[in-house]
Nucleic acid binder design. Structure first.
Ligand SMILES: [Mn+2]
Ligand SMILES: [Mn+2]
Ligand SMILES: [Zn+2]
Ligand SMILES: [Zn+2]
Lengths: 138, 138
DNA sequence: ATAAGCCATGCAATGGTATTGCATTATTGT
DNA sequence: ACAATAATGCAATACCATTGCATGGCTTAT
């Protein structure tokens, strides 16, 4: 198990330090995206700044992607696609539940092509759908 | 001119105070969405908190809508649709220019229908396209 | 084995923003 | 003109992101 985690780090050329292993293990347990504060609460002995830089490193090396879900605080989730340094391919829909306030990746639901006015050239896209998630549906 | 502004406020049942007239006039001059700080800089004698509450009032009464463009600081723009209290119909695409860092409403470009996994029911949507705007295209 | 160098960590400090309470002032309707 | 109501300005609070700097641990070359 720990080996798998360390291999995952190594495959992204990230030095497997104790803190990074802990953060990655926590990320692997989630089924929704989590914030920096969530991680801080989920780990006993962890400095917020170190987690902050750990996440920056993870994101830069294509291990996780950051999600702006409209709450103002970024959420983080593992990349399912084969992302690399500064090359993220997470053009999928994200869902924010107004009830449980969780943010979900929907990697199987790609963002459709969007027509733009002439002169506008797109580079990235971010689509957030807000509503009620499957867990909160009665 | 001032009459038109006051009428616009009255049509949304907003008391036309001096500050509100100033803020609305400033909003009418823009061709891109602006932030609270932008408005604060654009007005000489203006308390940030008052502008903050002015924008909240405008938004609640369907005069402007708030845009989360991924920068973390909300931008505001006039509603083109006929929005009312707590009923916004701004399901259009927003464009953030990575060069000039301006946020544009594209009211003629609606967000297409998005298929979701079973159990997820959508309420609102927010689509941000990032890239280069027409002004910055060389 | 030892020393130097690199990398990661933790602490402190800074800056920005949103949000609320409360007292004062302005506006409205009678 | 007066009373009731609404808006404003100031202060305070609470988060959060971001950077500098000093320390410590691990790696590597000598
Ligand atoms: Mn995702
Ligand atoms: Mn808009
Ligand atoms: Zn939910
Ligand atoms: Zn531009």
């Amino acid at each position: 198990m720990k080996l798998q985690v360390e291999q995952k780090l190594a495959s992204k050329k990230i030095n497997p330090t104790a803190m990074r292993i802990l953060v990655l293990e926590l990320l692997l347990q989630q089924n929704s995206a989590i914030s920096l504060s969530d991680i801080e609460k989920g780990l006993e002995t962890a400095d917020r700044i170190t987690i902050y830089r750990t996440l920056k490193t993870f994101e830069q090396n294509g291990l996780i992607h950051s999600i702006e879900d409209g709450t103002g605080t970024p959420k983080y989730a593992l990349c399912v696609e084969d992302c690399s340094t500064h090359e993220h391919y997470d053009m999928h829909v994200h869902f924010y539940c107004n009830s449980c306030e969780e943010t979900f990746c929907l990697p199987d639901h790609k963002i459709p092509d969007i027509s733009l006015p002439t002169g506008f050239s797109p580079a990235e896209m971010n689509l957030i759908v807000k509503g009620i998630c499957e867990n909160c549906a009665q």
